[in-house]
């Protein structure tokens, strides 16, 4: 393990509301955090699934939206300057002989931490794979659910499927590089930024790309190389020639790589004790929707409580020789200094 890039006290896997509040509770105890998430933004389910919907059971907020809650948490943890690593899927988590933990991501980021907090919620957000027969055969060669390096798509004949922001954005971004680009969507309306829709329509007008109504039914090709797809619309079936397909049907939560980290799992949840919220491996904690214990409620407020108790034990592990004092933020001048209260 020579290529450790970042050493830190704590790594938090998952930037959902519970992961974010963990930064606060750990911060009060002088524990510095790095936070990782596969999403491109913090907030987990609140920001990805229901940013505009109201939540009514956050203490002291009669009503707050998913995005507002995320924004407030970001504001609350700012004094602790957590470092965020977004667009990073945590692939592996291993204990070193010295008892610390090495975390690696799909993008090659490596961190070493004294404690790890798994706040992975319902699992990592992953692109939805349309259940088109035989699609697996083309994944990674002709079918892609995300674009990591645009250059790989130069001179390709690309079919983009969907009507949301990802579909529209990638049409616009790849259009200058692609040999040909076609957008297919089930209706002539888009749930995307009006500006992107306008730009797409202008390209179509100019014959610089195509838009067609329809839904994909079949894929044709061989050896993982796509040659054409059959699509259906109101007037029947038709074929579209293409060598690359990019389906964008939104995201879903899947347990993902954490299934392989050697932790005890119970129906895809991580059992913890209710004193420290520690997993079967000392030093690895699990809080929020991802954990289970008798009486568990998958609520944001439960996750906040779990974060507070977890932080106590994390402190004992990181600073075994120091005494943990119980203090109120209202009256403790040392806590207030950490929070930047003047």
């Amino acid at each position: 393990m020579s290529n450790i890039a970042i050493k830190t006290d704590a790594v938090i896997i998952g930037a959902g509301p519970v992961g974010l509040f963990a930064v606060f509770e750990l911060g009060l105890l002088d524990i510095r955090c790095h936070v990782l998430d596969i999403l491109d933004k913090p907030g987990g389910q609140c920001a990805e699934l229901y940013p505009e919907k109201p939540i009514y059971d956050i203490p002291a907020y009669p009503v707050i939206s998913g995005q507002e809650l995320t924004d407030r948490l970001m504001e609350q943890i700012e004094p602790f300057s957590p470092e965020f690593h977004l667009n990073q899927m945590v692939e592996s988590l291993q204990e070193t002989p010295e008892g610390s933990f090495v975390i690696t991501t799909d993008d090659g980021l490596v961190l070493e931490a004294k404690v790890v907090v798994i706040a992975a919620g319902g699992g990592s957000f992953m692109p939805k794979k349309p259940p088109i027969p035989g699609i697996d055969d083309y994944e990674g060669t002709s079918v892609f659910y995300a674009v990591k390096r645009m250059e790989e798509f130069r001179d390709r004949n690309i079919l983009v499927v969907g009507g949301g922001d990802s579909a529209l954005d990638w049409c616009l971004n790849l259009q200058p590089l692609a040999k040909k680009i076609t957008l297919i969507h089930r209706r002539d309306a888009f749930r995307a930024a009006p500006d992107s829709v306008q730009k797409m329509r202008a390209l179509v007008e100019n014959n610089d790309m195509e838009f067609t109504l329809g839904q994909i039914k079949e894929l044709h090709g061989k050896d993982g190389r796509l040659e054409k797809v059959t699509a259906q619309r109101a007037d029947g079936l038709f074929d579209i020639e293409c060598d690359t397909m990019l389906p964008f049907f939104g995201l879903t939560m899947k347990l993902g790589p954490l299934a392989n980290w050697g932790l005890n799992l119970n129906e895809n949840l991580i059992p913890v004790d209710t004193e420290k919220f520690q997993t079967s491996t000392p030093g690895i904690f699990a809080i929020g929707d991802i954990n289970t214990y008798p009486g568990k409620l998958k609520l944001i407020l439960s996750g906040f409580h779990e974060a507070a108790l977890m932080a106590q034990q994390a402190f004992r592990l990181i600073h075994p020789d120091e005494k943990l004092l119980f203090q109120y933020t209202t009256s403790s001048s040392s806590l207030q200094k950490k929070l930047g209260v003047k």
Binding site: P131, G162, G163, R187, Q215, F249
Partner: peptide
Amino acid sequence: EEDMLDFAFDV
């Protein structure tokens, strides 16, 4: 609901 149906298959 119409918008969300964009994320369903075989609509």
